[in-house]
């Protein structure tokens, strides 16, 4: 904010005269034009799903495409929200019916929130050590984190499955949460290390001199100072868990255990897709993220300003 305010004000006062103002006006118009065009491109696919989600199936599959639904229907939403049910049969209990979409949503939300919490805690303490302490193997840890990003994740699915099976975490949300934490961890650690690097060590030192333990200094002084960074990393962890498909598909069986990404695949069949349901489901999955996003986005930018991907 301040950067541009100051510099453009300074520019005006020095260059003076109409020509500079005109130049600025032209630049502003070009800036707006470019940003409007790019914004449309970025938003359009999202609007297109929203439009599709209100169309009846025949219109979705039609060769005569209209941007706005000709017949406006809530049927797709009704089907996704209310039409998917499953009878849970538990030993010794009467079978009961659950609404699948809400069940998947609850699973996804639970898993994403717990992943975010654990992921941030793991990453923060690891990043703190890498930033504050010199120790044997520090550089190796940094490099190893980078290397894990180089191995295609998809190929680790089966070994990971076998390990979770061995430790009894298969088909449990705990297993999925741990897996997602590891997926998000390397990038989270890198990010947070940048944030800790940007904070002077003096404050913690002073606290330790005053009798605070090193852990206390980390927890009560360093961590609160990196809140914008924590926000960025939390968002990253949440999205990792909320979006993931392949691990959830392989690890979680049973209709009532699925997450939303896997559940939405119920609209994809042997060869084709029920686009109208898929669209409604997609909108419903995206809405909660969007809401959170509107609140989080200012922290994303300010967070990346302070720490950033500086390595």
């Amino acid at each position: 904010m301040t950067t541009t305010t100051r510099s453009s004000a300074a520019a005006k006062s020095r260059a003076g005269g109409l020509s500079q103002t005109q130049k600025n006006l032209i630049a502003d118009i070009l800036t707006h034009a470019t940003l409007i065009i790019v914004s449309i491109i970025m938003v359009f696919p999202v609007l297109w799903v929203v439009s599709t989600s209100f169309k009846p199936q025949a219109e979705v599959e039609s060769s005569r495409i209209t941007l706005i639904p000709q017949t406006f229907t809530f049927e797709n939403y009704d089907h996704v929200l209310n039409g998917l049910t499953y009878t849970v049969q538990e030993r010794g209990a009467d079978p009961y019916e659950v609404n699948l979409f809400w069940t998947w949503g609850r699973n996804s939300l639970l898993i994403a929130l717990i992943t975010t919490t654990i992921g941030v805690l793991l990453a923060a303490s690891c990043a703190y050590a890498l930033s504050r302490f010199q120790f044997l193997g520090r550089r190796a840890v940094m490099i190893v984190f980078l290397i894990t990003q180089m191995f295609p994740g998809a190929i680790l699915v089966i070994p990971l499955y076998n390990i979770l099976n061995d430790i009894g975490l298969l088909n449990t949300w705990q297993g999925l949460v741990l897996s997602y934490c590891t997926v998000a961890l390397p990038f989270s650690v890198w990010m947070l290390k940048g944030f800790f690097d940007a904070i002077p060590y003096d404050l913690e030192e002073a606290a330790i001199v005053d009798g605070c333990s090193p852990v206390g200094a980390y927890w009560r002084i360093a961590l609160p100072l990196t809140l914008p960074g924590i926000a960025v990393v939390a968002f990253f962890n949440f999205m990792t868990a909320w979006n993931e498909f392949m691990l959830a598909l392989t690890f979680m069986t049973g209709e009532a255990n699925k997450t939303l990404p896997v559940g939405l695949r119920n609209f994809v069949f042997q060869f084709n897709t029920d686009w109208h349901y898929m669209a409604a489901g997609s909108v419903l999955v995206t809405i909660p993220v969007m809401i959170g996003f509107f609140y989080a986005q200012r922290y994303l930018v300010s967070g990346l300003t302070q720490g950033g991907v500086k390595g």
Binding site: Q89, L249, T253, G254, E255, Q270
Partner: peptide
């Protein structure tokens, strides 16, 4: 337990 798995 009647469960659906995407064919593909």
């Amino acid at each position: 337990n009647y469960e659906y798995v995407p064919f593909d």
